[in-house]
Amino acid sequence: MTEVSIKPMRMCDGRCDYFVSFKHGDREVTPHVFRERYKAEYHVALYKWLFGQGDKPHLLDFFDGEWPAREYTAEELQAFAALSETVTFGKLADAFGCFWNAAIGDAHQRQDPTAFAVIGSMAEGFAAVERRLREHGESE
């Protein structure tokens, strides 16, 4: 039978890491390490369930209100919604188009000839990417 357990390791600065351990006979691996014990405890319970050694754990039973056992904040939900927004060729082209304006403006403020040379070359490259994105966007 495979044993699943937590192996704490005290650090020299007083902190403690918690390793999730699998032991089968004389072989042992520790595939996960967590700084917080409750995270290790949840994973041990989950693996015990996987190996038929217990009931499926409920995430909220492990320190309700702490990550990962908590509800998402309004800011996190907003960020997730933004991730699902469709990114189009036009939106990407606009983003690349913004680069050269900001970069050249910054180089101008610095009045540094090297900055002008570098940013000029970079802006040409980003402008080429912007053009290609717009071409693809128009053909779709």
Rank of each mutant, 00 (worst) to 15 (best):
T2N: 01
T2R: 05
T2L: 13
E3R: 09
V4K: 00
S5F: 02
K7I: 04
P8K: 09
R10Q: 14
C12L: 13
C12V: 15
C12N: 14
G14Y: 02
R15W: 10
C16F: 07
C16V: 15
D17E: 11
D17H: 09
S21I: 03
K23F: 00
H24W: 15
D26F: 06
R27P: 04
E28T: 03
V33S: 12
F34V: 01
E36D: 13
E36K: 14
Y38T: 02
Y38N: 11
A40D: 11
A40I: 04
E41C: 12
E41Y: 05
Y42K: 05
Y42S: 06
V44Q: 00
A45E: 00
L46N: 08
K48A: 00
K48F: 01
W49E: 03
G52V: 08
G52I: 10
Q53P: 04
Q53A: 09
Q53H: 02
G54L: 06
D55Q: 15
K56V: 04
P57G: 01
L60M: 13
D61H: 14
D61P: 02
D61G: 09
F62C: 01
G65F: 02
E66A: 13
P68K: 03
R70C: 01
E71V: 01
Y72S: 12
E75L: 04
E75A: 15
E76T: 08
E76V: 08
L77C: 11
L77Y: 04
Q78L: 12
F80S: 05
A81V: 08
L83W: 09
S84W: 07
S84V: 10
E85L: 10
T86W: 05
T86Y: 04
V87A: 07
T88Q: 07
K91C: 09
L92D: 03
L92K: 05
L92N: 07
D94G: 08
A95N: 10
A95D: 06
C98R: 15
C98T: 05
F99I: 06
F99K: 08
W100P: 06
W100G: 09
N101D: 10
N101V: 11
N101Q: 11
A102E: 14
A107E: 00
H108C: 07
Q109W: 08
Q109N: 10
Q111G: 11
D112W: 02
P113L: 05
P113Y: 01
T114F: 06
A117R: 15
A117W: 05
I119A: 01
A123W: 00
E124C: 06
E124T: 14
E124I: 15
G125I: 10
F126S: 03
A127R: 15
V129N: 08
R131H: 08
R131A: 12
R131C: 05
R132Y: 12
H136N: 12
S139F: 09
